[in-house]
Design a protein around this nucleic acid. Structure first.
Lengths: 143, 143
DNA sequence: TTGCGATTGATAGCTAGCGATTAACAAGAG
DNA sequence: CTCTTGTTAATCGCTAGCTATCAATCGCAA
């Protein structure tokens, strides 16, 4: 019925649907999908700490979006924000133990949702899809 | 460097990056990516007309989001809204000639952006990707 | 006919995302 | 040292998306 051939529109629809479902499941954890994605990215960094600027690049977000996101995480005590004593422009964001705990709980919910999204694909198809998505994700940062 | 294995997060990042770029290019057309997606969907319908409810389903949006989106398109005179004389709950949205003109201009900009996103993939890889995305898009509506 | 469940749309209040602008600061050229 | 250029963060005003809730309407069953 809906034979969509535009890659951008397809990705947008899948993203909207997935995010909606993930946020429903995440509601009990008091985290949004976006907030969880940020926490996962911080956890992947050495010392579980990074700069605002680096996080912005990793998440493909605008600078103004990153500020707001971190601010909401800070209010919930899930991250700790600090300055750099040498370069006063730079700010760091570091995950707290509470943040790490919440993140791990939430990650499980998201993985369950992913499972459902991919359940009609074979293991090989899933690998192919992930590999192609990783490839265009690299390009997408500077098109 | 950034070895992301979560399908949901990958899709989210690609979508953010693509939407950002597409909106930049679309700025001259006075349309957003989201508005253009809606216009394309309406154009695909017989008589270039559909109900609010049907559009909502096609776009995988929430009902409240659809109302706001159509309202902004109506303000720009790109769609025309009307009621059903039999069932007073139902509202129709119909694309105007102006809307069709804007949509076609904007579609070209989006396709150029898609071209860039996919330029590192072979023709076969693009087909594989689209086919897998279509497959999970169908599932995504009811996970 | 009345009344109840289902459907459809509207509204309010929130997070998330963007661009544009401003401010603070760093670093290098002269 | 001063000026200029580039980098980083903060803020404002907007679109977009969501849930929850309310209101109107329809259809059907009793």
């Amino acid at each position: 019925m809906n034979e969509q051939n535009h890659c951008g529109i397809l990705i947008r629809q899948i993203n909207n649907a997935f995010e909606k479902k993930a946020n429903t499941r995440l509601k009990e954890t008091n985290l949004t999908f976006s907030q969880m994605s940020a926490l996962i990215e911080i956890l992947n960094m050495p010392a579980k700490k990074t700069t605002f600027k680096e996080l912005e690049k990793r998440l493909s977000l605008a600078q103004s979006t990153t500020v707001g996101l971190i601010s909401r995480l800070e209010q919930k005590k899930l991250v700790h924000v600090s300055g750099d004593k040498d370069d006063k422009r730079i700010k760091y964001v570091e995950i707290t133990p509470l943040g790490e705990k919440f993140c791990n709980e939430a990650k499980q919910e998201m993985e369950d949702t992913e499972q459902k999204l991919l359940e009609n694909l074979s293991a090989g198809e899933v690998e192919t899809l992930l590999s192609l998505l990783r490839k265009i994700n690299l390009i997408s940062k500077d098109i």
